[in-house]
Amino acid sequence: MELLCLEMDTIIRARPDPNLLCDDRVLQSLLTIEERFLPQYSYFKGVQKDIQPFMRRMVATWMLEVCEEQKCEEEVFPLAMNYLDRFLAVVPTKKCNLQLLGAVCMFLASKLKETRPLTAEKLCIYTDNSIRPQELLEWELVVLGKLKWNLAAVTPNDFIEHIVRRLPLPEDKLALIRKHVQTFIALCATDFRFAMYPPSMIATGSVGAAICGLQLDSADQSQWGDSLTDLLAKITNTEVDVLKECQEQIERVLVSSLREGRQQQQQQQQQTQRGPSGKGLDELDQSSTPTDVRDVNL
């Protein structure tokens, strides 16, 4: 008799727990502790000498691509970026070690959030073997030390359900809204301008941007009572003006990101027309747009 194991590729997830999601105290606690996990400084102005904001974006984009390709849980990437920013806020880091740091942060975030975490070997392959598993493990210890082992950071993703549940949204659109919000959150994590924002603000702004983007706010104005922004601001105790600005910033980043994505597509098309001789360009391709966002068809 042959024994078949059919459990191979199913990932077991806990169901959303109404005890946690419907209790106001949970949201209040998240709001209280979230600031503790923000990077302490805008590190490009002080701590970091060798690395530039565009390098953070390069490593962030690469991390997002790896997370996408490995089908990581949604919060892995924003959490890894939180580790990266907190580390960079205290440790001057060389450009050539930035990818190692990114890999370490994904390694840690994946271990914290996933039932089947990314392996060190896989991550090293993704760096095109420029780092070794041994180095990854050594630096894991260093990063943990610098983060004071505080890994359970609050991410914008922690707020999604709390916010969405408090809004009068059509049931059949919820999955789509969640997906768009996650995409916006990932997009924010790739952009340093959002690194110092509290996660709740990024989450609230992303929900606002998603609802507006899907035009769910204009369908029936009366159901909202207050405007959407007012309602959102109330949920996470954010100032309305600040929230508005944040949402607009998210929308701007999306637009420029889409534009870059389009240009890149064109470049790639031209390249394929030209044949494999255009390899130099391919290496230059910094793929600075999150893959997920590139697939948003607006």
Binding site: M55, M58, V59, W62, E65, V66, E68, E69, K95, C96, N97, L98, Q99, L100, K122, I125, Y126, T127, D128, S130, I131, E135, D285, S287
Partner: peptide, 19 residues
């Protein structure tokens, strides 16, 4: 793993001794 464009070295070689 790593057949796609996500497999790439971003910032050149790592100085192992220094590391």
């Amino acid at each position: 793993i790593g057949k796609g464009p996500a497999r790439r070295n971003l910032f050149g070689p790592v100085d192992r001794e220094q590391l």
